[in-house]
């Protein structure tokens, strides 16, 4: 079985330090966050440059080149609503360590990001929603099928569509949690890859609770067959849980030092 893929979420323009570094083209803070996440065990790094309407193309090229040059062609997840910026990023992207990921398409207005991924031989995160949150798994599955057909129609390998059930916040949507997990199981039974922004579930919870809740969720989701997650790799409890689950699933061979590799 393939290894679980963690996508580090901490290069995000919502962080003031990163936003400022992106505006000023200051490599320092971006490289530091990249290093922290890679040292903590992230496989991919998400690069969120925000909507970046005016200078997105140039900015994305700059960040992609910066990160890949400094970290041995680290594979990246290109995260922006600006399609031209994603394409610009891919144009300078080195695939030695893995295909680029387009973050993201959905079954609504952003469905053409699948076309973009197909045209560029990229992986595409596919949110199983159209207008807001799907009401149940029938609806999620309908969107999943729609996006799968579109991607395959364009010649994509189904393994390059990573379906996101949309993890929902527990405070407010506690009754939906098992449904999300069941959807992951449905995708897994179909042989599809899955991912998602896991930490959304613990939004609004006290800081010391979040790693506990996130770890429990990732363990249950991995039991259902989750193949990847967008996470904060610097959350040690979470990463230890993922590595332990990988051992239990047989994704990786046990050794006493498994937490250190």
């Amino acid at each position: 079985m393939a290894r679980f893929i963690t996508i580090g979420e901490r290069i995000h323009c919502i962080s003031p330090a990163i936003r400022e570094a992106m505006e000023k083209r200051d490599p320092g803070p971006i490289l530091q966050r990249a290093k922290e996440q890679l040292d903590a065990g992230a496989t991919y790094l998400d690069v969120n440059i925000g909507p970046a309407e005016s200078n997105g193309e140039e900015l994305m090229k700059w960040v992609v080149t910066l990160l890949q040059e400094n970290f041995d062609n680290v594979p990246l997840c290109l995260d922006t609503a600006n399609k031209k910026a994603i394409e610009a990023g891919i144009s300078v992207y080195n695939r030695a360590k893995g295909k680029p990921i387009v973050n993201s398409a959905d079954a609504g207005d952003r469905i053409d990001n699948i076309d973009l991924a197909a045209a560029n031989d990229a992986i595409c995160l596919a949110l199983c929603s159209k207008h807001g949150i799907s009401k149940d798994n029938d609806e999620r599955m309908a969107y999943c099928q729609e996006m799968l057909e579109r991607g395959m129609g364009l010649g994509m390998d189904p393994a390059d569509l990573w379906f996101d059930p949309l993890f929902l916040v527990i405070k407010g949507m506690q009754d939906k949690q098992m449904e999300v997990l069941e959807f992951i199981k449905m995708c897994s039974d179909m042989g599809l890859n899955t991912t998602g922004g896991l930490s959304n579930i613990s939004n609004g919870m006290p800081k010391h609770i979040r790693p506990i809740m996130d770890s429990a969720m990732v363990a249950m989701a991995m039991m259902c067959g989750l193949t990847s997650a967008i996470v904060n790799p610097c959350d040690r409890r979470l990463m230890e849980t993922i590595k332990s689950c990988e051992i239990i699933r047989g994704d990786t061979l046990y050794a006493d030092s498994y937490l250190e590799v």
Binding site: L253, Y254, A255, D256, S257, V261
Partner: peptide, 13 residues
């Protein structure tokens, strides 16, 4: 097998 991997880990460390 587990020791085989473990030895490689600690020797690399």
């Amino acid at each position: 097998i587990n020791l085989a991997k473990q030895l490689n880990v600690v020797m690399t460390q």
